Computed example of a mutant assay.
Amino acid sequence: MIRHDLSGANWKKSSRSSANGQCVEVADLVDAVALRDSKDPAGPVLVFERVAWASFLVGAKDGLRQR
Rank of each mutant, 00 (worst) to 15 (best):
D5H: 01
K13L: 08
D31R: 04
S55C: 14
W11N: 00
S7A: 06
G43V: 04
S38H: 02
L6F: 10
N20R: 14
K13N: 09
A54V: 05
A54G: 09
L35P: 10
S17L: 02
G21M: 09
Q66K: 14
P41F: 03
S18A: 06
R65A: 11
R36D: 03
V33A: 05
V30M: 05
S15C: 09
L64V: 15
V58E: 15
K39C: 04
V45C: 10
A27T: 01
W11P: 02
V24L: 00
K61N: 12
I2S: 13
S7N: 06
R67L: 13
W53D: 01
Q66N: 15
R50D: 07
G59T: 10
D62K: 15
G63E: 06
Q22W: 13
S55G: 15
A34Q: 14
D40K: 09
A54E: 09
R67M: 11
V58R: 11
G8D: 11
R3A: 03
Q66D: 15
G43H: 05
V51M: 06
E49R: 06
A54W: 07
K61L: 10
P44K: 12
G8V: 07
V30Q: 09
D28V: 12
V33Y: 03
A19L: 14
R65Q: 10
G8H: 11
P41L: 03
D40G: 10
L64R: 15
L6Q: 12
A34G: 14
S55E: 12
V51C: 07
R67Q: 14
G59V: 06
D37F: 00
A32R: 06
K13Q: 13
V47H: 04
P41N: 03
A54Q: 08
R3D: 00
L57W: 09
A42V: 06
V51E: 05
G59C: 11
N20C: 14
A60T: 10
S15N: 11
F56T: 01
P41H: 01
K39S: 05
R3I: 02
I2H: 13
A34F: 10
L29H: 06
L29F: 11
G43M: 05
V58Y: 12
R65D: 07
G8E: 09
V45L: 08
A60V: 07
L46Y: 03
V51I: 13
R50G: 07
S15Y: 04
L29N: 08
G21T: 06
F48A: 02
S38F: 00
G21S: 11
W11G: 01
D28R: 14
G43A: 11
L35F: 07
E25Q: 00
